[in-house]
Design a protein around this nucleic acid. Structure first.
Lengths: 145, 145
DNA sequence: CGGAATCCGTGATGATACTG
DNA sequence: CAGTATCATCACGGATTCCG
């Protein structure tokens, strides 16, 4: 029946998938996946600097659809990492910020992001070596034939 | 033709997608996605204890298809985080271990995983509160009508 | 045993339009 | 502005098969 975009029923009103949740794995692995998810990482890092409004966050991250940003924020909010402050005004104004738990998570994630940045040239060098090696023995194999 | 499973042409012999690579974003964001990818995280953490053979690693992680494990390992190898030692014997024997770079990455990832485990009950509590709150004002809205 | 290659379902993602 | 709803699309990832 192609339940595209998995639907959640009353008992478990979870917002969106954000990496399949159906598996019966240790629950903390799921939180890990929320935190390390594509947009989760970027949201946490952004919100670490300061509080953001929805569209503002969207622009800051760039190339994220409204849908995915909403989904990510809802998941992180449900996990208690993000605080959502909706002000009942016209036009609507919603501010997102980190909770204490979220700040801790953000620090971990940020450390990882900083490491990545620091070691980037090492990675690039490794890639060139890898690609070169593959090219080399692809050629050698062609010489056989 | 529905290019399922994006194809890479000679200039960029990258193994597999492992989260879409086509986007022109800062390259270190890609490495971050490799490292935080679903299986990338688990592979790094496992290999941190010791070296593993392919099937051994597969069993240790559990519920990972050969294909995804291969893809993950190849991506991490290309990024210079994992070392692949293929011994030309029959039957084939291939050992995977972390490089120095990989060990650094694994430490970051492990810190995150440990944090997740430590704060798990906080997250669970937050979820219950969130779900309860939603249930409550779903009821309130029903009272309106 | 360790992969490489293929087929294929379904779920994650993005574009668009609509609501309050 | 901050979402929600709907739809179209591909990439993830599993199963299977073949090779060395």
């Amino acid at each position: 029946m192609a339940v595209s975009e998995s639907v959640f029923v009353p008992p478990a009103p979870a917002p969106g998938p954000l990496l399949s949740e159906q598996e019966a794995m240790c629950p903390h692995r799921l939180v890990l996946e929320h935190v390390t998810s594509r947009w989760g990482v970027l949201v946490l890092i952004r919100l670490q600097e300061r509080s953001y409004r929805f569209s503002e966050l969207r622009r800051a991250i760039g190339r994220v659809s409204e849908k995915m940003l909403t989904q990510t924020l809802q998941t992180l909010e449900r996990d208690g990492l993000v605080h959502r402050d909706a002000k009942p005004v016209i036009p609507p104004r919603v501010d997102y910020s980190l909770t204490d738990l979220g700040r801790e998570a953000a620090e971990q994630v940020r450390a990882l992001a900083l490491w990545t940045e620091r070691r980037m040239d090492g990675v690039l060098a490794a890639r060139q070596a890898y690609d070169e090696a593959r090219r080399a023995d692809a050629e050698a194999r062609r010489a056989d034939a």
